[in-house]
Design a protein around this nucleic acid. Structure first.
Length: 876
RNA sequence: GGGCGCUUAGCUCAGCUGGGAGAGCAACGGCCUUACAAGCCGUAGGUCACAAGUUCAAGCCUUGUAGCGCCCACCA
């Protein structure tokens, strides 16, 4: 069994962690805390790739901080998700032939709860498979008693302060869901449409005013025609009366600055009850509001001939009627934007109705102030500007929804005296004003985002004064996708400041959206959905986590091709095998069990130094939310430094070619570097690291509570000695590769060194160089008498030659040398030019100048040697 | 209409405060070398969209141009 098999280990370790309560913070110790509150998924939800991403990132941070000694809490919860859930359950019931209306609100809500008990929280089971280290003991739900109390408390407070009010207003109405929507819940798309021109005759029959409209059917609700006051063409008509075709209503011609004389005919029909602009005009000019639609957007009884017709049907039919009446003038193509319900895609109908609103301006200003004072920081930064833009142009928030699933608005109406009582009490039976007991509770519920807006503190027990609130609020950071910046983040910031006087979190990291390999949004209809659970089953959770982490770049969406996941699975396999190799030799580790007991050689010190650099980088990158860089740093170290070089260096030691002491030292360094590497990788790939770490003889407990590495052990001054030997191996491999010398052809290496240290090192470690370079012997020389058949390479402090008399292809070797020379000469020319520039010498920092000079010397020396080698070739 | 981005190797993309153009995948050549063929070694490939500017020095800073994308907005 050489390969890693995730299925065998993942469940085992998750159960181990959970049953040992490793996810729950120990409140008895007063460590520094680190808190993340989950973006609550819908109770009805199934894990999609976006969840996999956001929760992987949170888990990486949480595990990293937990290992770094913080008291960490990752609090999970779900959102009741008003419309979405109601729709799902409605659909389920319809399958059984039951309509929501038959059941009534109470029964229906009971059904949803039942459904939630059965199928809800599926997503948390799936999150466990991802490895999410949430504290499941603190799981919350937005409709829990505690969170509901927070909703009531905040609502009442805001109402008493005058920030929440009830008013008649034109709102976005979904005729399918039969509820009001907030502006954010409406998606706008450009669609082909038409512009219909209709002639409206003046009352006295003297003329007609032609208006243009995209929605001719709304003319039934017209209560005016507007023109721009400065429009010469129509100045005479202002104040005159028009007879509305088909309906016969007398309506005035009004003047309003809103009208654009350039558009259409410059005259606009005004339908205050069915268009947001017209609504405003209606208020400005005190016009009547004629509602022409039922709640499901059919023509109501205002116009009998079309009564009961759907608005789109009516649109066609009314044109016919207008033609019959002789007022239809023409129709043009006219693309325009239409609003659709975010949930059901039905075209939204603006509708005047009584709704509850929240004033946003002051809260938005407070949020902007907090941001400008640096109390809240967005990562990436440009998201802060988007936040600012939105906050600066904020509109009041329509809070009420004509749904049944959600927090019922805590308001009661008295039918006798019309008193409105807004109170935290859950049972109101008598009117506080007139004593009547004809009181009834508001049936509307709150926008689902209202309760999630309280999530950072309602989950901690607010409004009560709880220990959790004290310890874990404000949260440390918020991780979420940028597409809910306004829906959720903005609301949390505003409500957080308002209700608790504190910013709910000082940092917000907004990640991109996961798309398919062609950059398309994933959707079931397109069939390009990647199911994270499928990925987990095929490649393992760690491969998925590593992939998502390594693709998380600031401010960019993520394309996810399967190939990348496969490559990262291979990386895990690499670690798996490196560990197997190490363990297979570990019993030979005698005295030098502790790293500090070992007397590390130059390669040992080199790998420790490389590890220290990787660990420092990973820590820094995670701190900066540069997930991709953190993953890359760990990957590059483990694969390309630890496995590619160090493991190969160690092999000759293990075979006893350099003596027992060196072997012991390297074995110790090998072991401890591996062990530390597992800890370094754990936050990103928890399962495989736990599995391997548990197999180590020194491990105790769990890797998830082991210390996150910083520096393995301090290594003193810069040590280039190993690098030089590594460089030499590279030069020899290049000669081999380019000359197509088969690995089984063992050649002798002649090395000419230019300094004493290198001579010593090469002598001591010739076995290692021989092993890595695939040569049978290494002869260390101070100079060489070149003879035929020697192919040579040049390094900074050495030249190497191999005897190729048997295999040499002179043409090929000459070609190789010439290519090398050309490359070096180009570089040389560049640097010469730079150094010839007086301003460069004068103005560039001394270190930069010196570096260039050194490099030039090195290049010149190398080129000289290559020339010599070329001569040798020519003589053959 | 306003705002925010993107353009770097065949593909997907990194590149933080200006000083070496990089990774993964794909390609090419060679290897079952005693952890790993889910692997190893070697090689090739780029006017960093275009133009101008600042600078000793620009993929990176400034301005403009072109193409692409996203978000917001009440133009009938």
């Amino acid at each position: 069994m050489n390969n890693y098999n995730p299925q065998e280990i993942e469940k085992k370790w998750y159960d181990f962690w959970e049953s040992n309560r490793f996810f729950s913070p120990d409140l008895s110790e007063a460590d520094e805390t680190y808190t993340i509150v989950i973006p609550p998924p819908n109770v009805t939800g199934f894990l999609h790739i976006g969840h996999a991403l956001v929760n992987t990132l949170q888990d990486v941070l949480i595990r990293w901080k937990r290992m770094s000694g913080f008291k960490t809490l990752w609090l999970p919860g779900t959102d009741h998700a008003g419309i979405a859930t109601q729709m799902v359950v409605e659909r389920e019931l319809r399958k059984k032939g039951i309509e929501r209306e038959e059941l009534g609100q109470e029964k229906f809500v009971e059904e949803i709860w039942k459904w939630k008990e059965q199928s809800g929280n599926m997503i948390f089971k799936q999150l466990r498979r991802l490895g999410a280290s949430c504290d499941w003991e603190r799981e919350r739900f937005t409709l829990d008693e505690g969170l509901s109390k927070a909703v009531r408390k905040s609502f009442v407070d805001l109402y008493n302060e005058g920030l929440i009010y009830r008013d008649d207003y034109i709102v976005n109405w979904c005729p399918n869901d039969k509820t009001a929507l907030s502006d954010l819940e409406v998606d706008h798309t450009d669609k082909d449409g038409t512009l219909t021109y209709i002639g409206y005759p003046l009352e006295d029959g003297s003329a007609e005013l032609v208006v243009a409209t995209t929605r001719p059917e709304t003319m039934l609700g017209d209560t005016a025609v507007a023109v721009n006051p400065n429009d010469e063409r129509y100045r005479e008509l202002i104040g005159k009366t028009i007879r509305l075709p088909l309906v016969g209503r007398m309506i005035p011609v009004i003047a309003d600055e809103f009208v654009d004389p350039e558009f259409g005919t410059g005259a606009v029909k005004v339908t205050p009850a069915h268009d947001p602009n017209d609504f405003q005009m209606g208020i400005r000019h005190d016009l009547p509001f004629v509602n022409i639609f039922t709640k499901d957007a059919r023509i109501n009884d205002v116009f009998k001939p079309l009564e009961g017709q759907d608005r789109f049907e009516a649109r066609k039919n009314i044109v016919e009627l207008l033609k019959q009446e002789g007022v239809f003038r023409k129709v043009e193509k006219h693309p325009h934007s239409i609003g659709q319900c975010q949930r059901c895609k039905t075209v939204v109908e603006p509708r005047v109705s009584t709704q509850w609103f929240c004033k946003m301006k002051d809260m938005a200003e407070a949020s902007l102030k907090a941001m400008n004072e640096g109390k809240i920081r967005f990562i990436p930064e440009n998201q802060g500007r988007i936040f600012e833009e939105w906050m600066s142009n904020i509109q009041d928030w329509c809070l009420s929804r004509q749904l049944w699933w959600g927090h019922r608005i805590p308001a009661w109406y008295c039918d006798d005296c019309d008193e409105i009582m807004v109170t935290e009490e859950q049972e109101v039976t008598t009117c506080s004003k007139c004593g009547s007991n004809k009181v009834r509770q508001e049936t509307d519920v709150l926008d689902t985002w209202y309760s999630s807006g309280l999530f950072p503190f309602s989950t901690m027990g607010w409004p009560d004064d709880t220990r959790d609130l004290e310890i874990f609020y404000p949260n440390s950071t918020l991780i979420t996708a940028y597409d809910i910046l306004f829906f959720w983040v903005a609301r949390m910031v505003m409500l957080g400041i308002k209700m608790t006087d504190e910013i709910p979190f000082p940092e917000v990291f907004l990640h991109g959206l996961v798309r398919d390999e062609n950059g398309e949004k994933m959707s079931k209809t397109k069939g390009n959905v990647i199911d994270p659970i499928d990925v987990v089953e095929k490649y393992g959770a760690d491969a998925l986590r590593f992939t998502l982490t390594s693709l998380t770049v600031m401010g960019r969406d993520i394309k996810l091709p399967e190939k990348i996941i496969e490559g990262n699975r291979n990386f895990i396999n690499k670690i798996w095998n490196a560990t197997r190799f190490t363990l297979s030799h570990i019993e030979r580790l005698g005295t030098a069990k502790n790293l500090t007991d070992a007397a590390p050689g130059i390669f040992d010190r080199w790998i420790i130094k490389r590890f220290n650099k990787a660990a420092t980088d990973v820590n820094r990158y995670l701190k900066e939310y540069r997930f991709n860089e953190a993953a890359k740093a760990a990957y590059a170290f483990v694969w390309h430094e630890f496995c590619d070089w160090y493991l190969e260096v160690v092999k000759p030691m293990l075979f006893g070619k350099l003596g027992d002491e060196a072997c012991q030292a390297s074995l110790s360094v090998l072991y401890h570097t591996l062990e530390a590497s597992l800890r370094l990788l754990h936050p990103i790939m928890p399962f495989v690291t736990e599995e391997l770490w548990q197999a180590l003889p020194t491990s105790d407990g769990t890797i998830m509570l082991a210390e996150f590495p910083n520096e393995l052990i301090g290594i003193g001054a810069e040590d280039q000695r190993a690098e030089t030997l590594i460089d030499m191996v590279g030069v020899v491999r290049n000669i081999r590769g380019e000359n197509n010398i088969k690995p089984n052809v063992k050649i002798d290496l002649l090395a000419v060194t230019r300094n004493k240290q290198l001579t010593e090192d090469l002598t001591s470690f010739r076995e290692i160089v021989a092993s890595l370079a695939g040569v049978k012997s290494v002869e260390v020389l101070e100079s060489i008498n070149k003879s035929e058949g020697l192919a040579g390479g040049v390094g900074k402090e050495f030249e190497v030659f191999v005897d190729l008399r048997e295999t040499i292809d002179v043409a090929q070797e000459t070609n190789r040398l010439e290519k090398e020379k050309t490359k070096l000469e180009a570089k040389q020319a560049q640097i010469r030019k730079k150094l010839a520039n007086d301003s460069f010498i004068a103005k560039a920092p001394e270190a930069v100048v010196q570096k260039n000079k050194d490099e030039l010397d090195e290049l010149t020396a190398k080129i000289e040697k290559i020339d010599e080698n070329l001569k040798t070739m020519q003589s053959m």
